[in-house]
Design a protein around this nucleic acid. Structure first.
Length: 209
DNA sequence: GCGGGGATTAACT
DNA sequence: GTTAATCCCCGCG
């Protein structure tokens, strides 16, 4: 094993450093989330997810396309849990996975479309330990930002849970979504996006040569 | 109601 | 690589 030494390190000074007040002033409007989930998933990388006095830079996302997407909770149509996905974009969807972990999603697109984006990893930005592990993985994102199902169905255009404009313009990679093997051909579609070489990304596939 | 299973994680062998 | 933890959603009867 030779070239394993090159540990990718993202320099903090690559990021614009903003205060909580700055972030509040840079809040993304509802229109940002009215785009399709693939566009939102890609453009969210480098944006800042803020909850109260904690914030992380989004480094990994997944797009879920709607009822036809067999990996999506929307595949059963609107239910008591998922009806929020069929509302307008810009609203949170938080659910419990494996009885243990909370998953934070943002509904995208328009009324009735059933699209959403899962936030799979964040890098510490404000109010968090300077350790890439704290937001590495979807269950860790909610843990780091103290989010749970009480934060389901929040309007991100108002209140203390929101997304702020990008603080970086990283190189972005894409590949198949994680943990959706049950979804047949949908499992292979490249609907996962991540900040290339960022240490907070939950899993890094072998680099092509 | 019942039963199967999950957009995960950490701690095993 | 394998497995337990642990809850509740969803389809079906």
């Amino acid at each position: 094993m030779t070239a394993r030494a090159r540990a990718p390190v993202v320099q903090l000074r690559q990021l614009r450093r903003l205060t909580l007040d700055d972030l509040a002033g840079a809040r993304l409007p509802a229109a940002f989330f009215a785009e399709d989930s693939v566009t939102v998933a890609r453009t969210l990388i480098g944006c800042v997810l803020v909850h109260r006095d904690r914030a992380g830079v989004v480094v990994e996302t997944e797009a879920y396309l709607g009822p036809a997407d067999l990996a999506s909770h929307a595949r059963f149509g609107p239910t008591a849990r998922t009806s929020v996905m069929f509302g307008p974009g810009g609203v949170s969807y938080v659910y419990l996975c494996y009885g243990v972990h909370q998953m934070f999603n943002i509904v995208t697109g328009g009324e009735g479309e059933g699209q959403a984006v899962l936030i799979r990893a964040i890098a510490p930005y404000l109010g968090l330990p300077d350790d890439s592990a704290v937001g590495r993985g979807p269950g860790k994102v909610t843990q780091a930002l103290a989010l749970d199902r009480r934060h389901d169905r929040r309007d991100l255009a108002r209140g203390d849970l929101f997304v702020a404009a990008p603080v970086a313009a990283p190189r972005i990679a894409r590949g198949p979504r994680i943990g959706v093997a049950y979804a047949g051909a949908w499992a292979d579609r490249p609907l996962r996006f991540w900040w290339r070489d960022h240490p907070a990304v939950s899993r890094t596939p072998p680099r092509r040569r």
